[in-house]
Amino acid sequence: MKKILAATLALSLAACAPANTSVPEAAAPAPAATTMTTTVATTRSTALNPVGEYEFATQVNGEAVTGTIEITGTPGAYGGRIVTLKFPEFTVRSASAAGQELTVVAETPNGNVTFRMMFTGDTFTGGWTLGGDTGAITGRRTH
């Protein structure tokens, strides 16, 4: 019985072994050229349309201030107003968008205030500057 198992094992191994031929081996073919594809996630590349209404919240001199920014007009000729309960109405002198960032400049009795708002969908975060004063701003587009 051991001889039969040994013979069967020997035949099985021989069948699995590569054949020994006298033909010289050909050189392995060159690897095929590969093409690599890269997928890059992109964000919305078109600039925001500034025309619309925005609600915002900020702090000025430690006091909470809420209000609206209304932008009207056409590219190169945007205008509008900023309305709060704490301050008189401010006239928007310019608005511009670069990607998802909106910059609004309005005239105040103390000089121009600049709002910079970075959008994610309809909500934004950013800041404002007026002379040496600055503050954070948050809000959303309502129209």
Results as ranks from 00 to 15, higher is better:
K3I: 11
A10G: 05
A14K: 00
A15R: 01
N20Q: 12
V23R: 10
A26T: 11
A26K: 14
A27R: 02
A30Y: 02
T34S: 13
M36R: 10
T37I: 15
T43Y: 00
T46V: 14
A47S: 15
V51F: 02
E53G: 12
E55C: 04
F56A: 10
F56S: 08
A57E: 14
V60L: 06
E63A: 15
T66M: 01
T68E: 12
T68S: 11
T68V: 10
E70T: 15
I71P: 05
T74V: 14
G79S: 13
F87E: 02
F87S: 06
P88G: 05
F90Q: 10
R93V: 15
S94Q: 09
A95T: 06
S96L: 11
E101Q: 15
E101W: 02
L102F: 08
T103Q: 06
T103G: 01
V104H: 03
V105W: 01
V105C: 00
V105L: 00
A106M: 10
N110G: 00
G111E: 01
T114M: 02
F115K: 06
R116K: 12
R116Q: 10
M118R: 08
F119S: 03
G121W: 00
D122H: 05
D122G: 01
G127R: 05
G132I: 13
G135K: 04
T138G: 05
T138P: 00
R141N: 03
H143S: 10
